[in-house]
Design a protein around this nucleic acid. Structure first.
Ligand SMILES: NC(=O)c1ccc[n+]([C@@H]2O[C@H](COP(=O)([O-])OP(=O)(O)OC[C@H]3O[C@@H](n4cnc5c(N)ncnc54)[C@H](O)[C@@H]3O)[C@@H](O)[C@H]2O)c1
Ligand SMILES: NC(=O)c1ccc[n+]([C@@H]2O[C@H](COP(=O)([O-])OP(=O)(O)OC[C@H]3O[C@@H](n4cnc5c(N)ncnc54)[C@H](O)[C@@H]3O)[C@@H](O)[C@H]2O)c1
Lengths: 213, 213
DNA sequence: TTATAATCGATAATTTTATATCGATAATAA
DNA sequence: TTATTATCGATATAAAATTATCGATTATAA
């Protein structure tokens, strides 16, 4: 049975990486077992929620001791399909694009960026963190020929819908969008947005209440 | 009555910036009125949910026409307290920190980064995008003296708890954390995490289901 | 060996969030 | 002027997510 085929609530999926972060640290510290209670305490969530989240990945715990750390990492990783890294393109190698390109951590999250695309002639042809920057013209052809499923979109907001359309027409399956725009994509294309403004909204609203209230 | 003092569900707060993005575009296009139906259609959410979200900011719509675009922008902005930008420090001016520092968009989201801090001597003393980079040693003193409320944390994960503790002891009120770590802060300190792995988890999980299922 | 304590995991209850219904309102057209 | 239509916003319902309860299990200590 392939774990990554099971459905889960989005909130659960979003918490799973938090568990992985903690578990990997525990592994480094040579901790063999960890209980839902311990995880919950560190991550400030309820133990019962931790157990529910973990159980969806198929792991079975041991009463009195908890879960085996390595087994749990493997279970979550399989569930997220992070054991199979997907090759991806990034479009727009500016400040943010370059930071993402240079971040080695994403390989642990199932993402392997193998090429960047830009319109800036000063960037095209160069290698950034070992990844070649290619002209935008070649994007469509390469998505098709290399069967790329994921596009990371870090172009200016004004350009993103156009690039998005171009990727979609080339058969891209999922777009990880960083531009502050509500991209229009067909139902079958997975769109995941990183809108930092959303996170900041929560922060500023809470802070305003704290300072004034 | 100060709008930013009203409580709202977190999901609502997280959607508000999406409305602002769309509304600002409409304003540029000289659109005067917009209905919840129109917003809902573009953002792929239910009209009733849009109305509920907007109503929490105190706006009152007009039957048959909808909401006045400018008034609605003002209403949401006030609710999020984005009309009062907060001065902030950023700690760790690496690839990501520099991208954030250079991003002019955050001023529209109530955040004004006025100084960066790092331990890298090559960076200290320089100005990046007009913002001075100062030595980490001066962080605590400056938070206190300048009454800084927000710290943006973009140091390596191994360093972040220590810097976090240092900011907390200097009286910081809110931390916007980008490192993949569950920071421990006292209850009264607002902690907002940007864990890109969470977003990626949703994407990879959906993609795996799509490709295999 | 037996009692104790911690934890798991199934089921139930509660809370939160999203959606549906419908009368009231205001613009538009007959 | 009056009918029609789109939309708002209050109230009600449904769905989703979280939290509580409790018997079963197993390591640890008496
Ligand atoms: N920098 C941040 O912290 C930050 C934060 C939130 C959102 N964003 C969003 O991320 C995106 C990128 O931001 P940035 O700060 O890196 O901007 P940037 O200007 O530094 O980089 C944009 C890059 O895209 C390239 N580009 C422009 N048009 C292109 C096209 N049609 N095809 C391919 N490449 C093209 C440019 O040459 C440049 O290299 C923007 O949409 C921005 O709103 C950035
Ligand atoms: N780059 C990305 O796309 C990305 C994505 C997700 C998360 N992150 C996280 O963001 C953080 C920064 O990532 P990055 O790619 O910019 O790393 P980076 O190595 O480019 O930058 C880190 C910066 O922090 C400085 N620094 C180190 N120790 C410090 C200390 N004690 N005090 C002050 N400054 C210190 C370094 O000199 C450097 O300038 C990391 O925690 C990383 O895991 C980055």
């Amino acid at each position: 049975m392939d774990k990554s085929l099971i459905s889960a609530p989005i909130p659960t999926i979003r918490r799973l990486p938090k568990y992985i972060h903690m578990l990997k640290r525990l592994k480094i510290e040579n901790v063999l077992y960890v209980s839902a209670t311990t995880i919950a305490h560190e991550l400030k969530i309820e133990p019962i929620l931790v157990r529910k989240d973990l159980s969806i990945t198929g792991i079975i715990g041991k009463p009195k001791v908890g879960f085996e750390v390595e087994e749990l990492i493997a279970s979550i990783t399989q569930f997220l399909n992070w054991n199979n890294t997907e090759d991806a393109f990034i479009i727009g190698v500016g400040a943010l694009g370059e930071a993402i390109l240079g971040y080695s951590g994403f390989k642990d999250y199932g993402l392997n960026i193998i090429a960047g695309f830009d319109i800036d002639k000063k960037k095209i042809g160069k290698k950034i963190f070992g990844v070649e920057i290619l002209p935008l013209d070649s994007l469509e052809d390469l998505i098709k020929r290399m069967h790329i499923n994921i596009g990371v979109l870090t172009v200016p907001a004004s350009e993103s819908q156009e690039i998005c359309d171009s990727m979609v027409s080339s058969g891209i399956k999922a777009i990880w969008n960083f531009s502050p725009i509500a991209l229009q994509v067909p139902d079958e294309v997975i769109l995941e947005n990183v809108h930092l403004s959303q996170s900041l909204a929560v922060l500023t609203h809470k802070l305003a209440k704290k300072l004034k209230g």
